[in-house]
Amino acid sequence: MTETTSILVLVFGTLLFTLFAVFTILYIALQKKKQYHHHLEKQEMEHRFSTQLMQSRLEVQEQTLKNMSAEMHDNIAQMLGAVKLQLHMLAAGAADEEQRSLANEGASTMRDAIRDVRSMSHLMNGTYVLRKGLKESIEKDLDRIVAAHRIKCNFTVSGPERKLGEDRELMLFRIIQESVANAVRHGQPLHISVSLHYGPDSLRVLIEDNGKGFDTTRVSPASGVGMMNIEERARLLGGDVNISSQVNIGTSVQLDIPV
């Protein structure tokens, strides 16, 4: 082998080996990039699918509430109205004072029941909630709680109010409604406060009660169906929900959503 041939073999051979290494590195880097994009696409598809699934589940829930609301308004409230009328008639034709007083009392209870059923049916109906707006619907729900459970409620709004869009307002109302219902059902509080604070680019909702509370280290706040619904709705709103509770002190649900 001549000197020049040796040099050529050496130079080209070494370059070839080095190029092999460089191409391997580039190939792996490109494959990893492709793999990552594929992973991202898959994740996005999964996210889209779960969002659609969640949305359709909530739509079905909303439709069920609407049907129940119509049933309560058109059927149960009507029947209660008829019973109330009959009790009035009974009171008018009562033979003695004791019977009259008893029938009037029944009619009065029936009037309260009709009011509660109507109020509940209104708040279960999404169309009604949307027509009234978020603020008025929350006030109406809290009024119902005050009347039905004798719990002191207060509601405050701060910051420059803005419209969130129909679907988002309805979802937000359902979150507040569920949180308040949970507080009443499980906490037996004396006081519930709901506050909305409109920030420059977010809305903070805070629902606090002074009820029994629970130990968050032993019971997961998200274990119930109600809480799961709250979390799903919050996720659809693109927000974060944070639940904190202390035994015998109370529970607070804080929701931050972008607006």
């Binding site: 000197e3 040099i7 050496l10 070494t14 080095t18």
Partner: peptide
């Protein structure tokens, strides 16, 4: 490491075996 050792594999193996015949041209190596 792959680039370095791929290079080393040939340059050392071929280079050392023909090192004696390279004389002044070993500067390329």
């Amino acid at each position: 490491l792959l680039t370095f050792w791929s290079f080393t594999l040939l340059s050392w193996l071929v280079g050392l075996s023909i090192y004696q015949s390279l004389k002044d041209n070993s500067i390329i190596l």
